[in-house]
Design a binder for these strands. Structure first.
Length: 270
DNA sequence: ATGGTCGGTACCCGA
């Protein structure tokens, strides 16, 4: 199957069952072809397949668990194959992949990198070590499984805001988990693993602030605007000429019972 | 400098 235009979305949904109506709203208003979700917090046998089948997402690949993490890829485009990956020795539902018949064959990876806890210290905080180990393993894994000439997409909640203007205050967040040099250095190394294109920054200049997440712990997220860009869509070089448009749907932060993350949308033209 | 709010689940954990 050859597609002319493909609209891809990544969204940390923070409970797929609670927010199925918001995914329906996204589908109705923006008509994405593929939706990659993180933090579904839903065991596979309780996943609301019917809701998404009814919206035209006939092809669904999931890997969920009780209470934590969990991933889904909802698609109008069939999968050639699906995979579930276990990273850094854990089976905690943070990495799935589908193969698509796009541009001669494209692998789409959905990632949920660990948040890393509060203390940016691997000696005292196992969650932070887990996060750094996860990124290092992904870097090596991409290097060893692909060539720069392969069509690969990596999306998800990376839980790292790599650039100065990916956070509301670079200076104030340098010691805050998500923006520490230990994390951003490693994410930059991961970006070099396949000469990945950070597609948001392909469309938005590096000196312009842009976010995809605003904490629940702010009285007024829009007024304080203390956001971070934690959600990413990366593509390898062969897909770069096909990048057509980009949108971070910040309005979704004001939808009824919102996630703290908003959808990141990328359009391809083939 | 501190505490602030969510969701899932089970009276707390992770974000």
């Amino acid at each position: 199957m050859t597609q002319n235009n493909i609209r891809l979305v990544t969204w940390n949904i923070n409970s797929v069952r609670l927010r199925a109506p918001l995914i329906e709203k996204l589908a109705n208003e923006h008509a994405p072809d593929i939706i990659c979700l993180q933090e579904t917090k839903c065991p596979d046998d309780l996943f609301p397949f019917d809701t998404f089948h009814a919206l035209g997402y006939e092809h669904i690949h999931i890997h969920g668990m009780k209470s934590y993490n969990g991933q889904a890829i909802l698609s109008k485009i069939p999968f050639e194959a699906t995979e579930i990956h276990h990273r850094v020795g854990r089976e905690d539902c943070r990495h799935i992949m589908v193969k698509l018949d796009i541009n001669g064959g494209t692998d789409l990876h959905n990632l949920y990198i660990p948040a890393g806890g509060d203390e940016p210290d691997i000696e005292t905080n196992d969650k932070f070590k887990h996060k750094l180990d996860f990124v290092e393993e992904m870097t090596l894994w991409f290097k060893t499984h692909y060539k720069d000439t392969d069509n690969v997409i990596a999306v998800g909640d990376f839980n790292i805001a790599p650039q100065e203007h990916d956070v509301w205050s670079h200076k104030q967040l340098l010691k805050i988990v998500s923006h520490t040099p230990a994390e951003t250095d490693r994410l930059n190394d991961m970006q070099k693993s396949l000469t990945w294109v950070d597609t948001t920054r392909h469309f938005v200049p590096s000196d312009e602030k842009i976010y995809s997440w605003w904490s629940y712990r702010n009285r007024d997220w829009k007024k304080s605007n203390r956001g971070r860009r934690l959600d990413h869509i990366w593509v390898t070089q062969p897909l770069k000429p096909h990048l057509a448009a980009h949108n971070i749907l910040s309005e979704a932060r004001d939808w009824e019972k919102p996630s703290d993350h908003v959808p990141v949308i990328l359009d391809f033209k083939f």
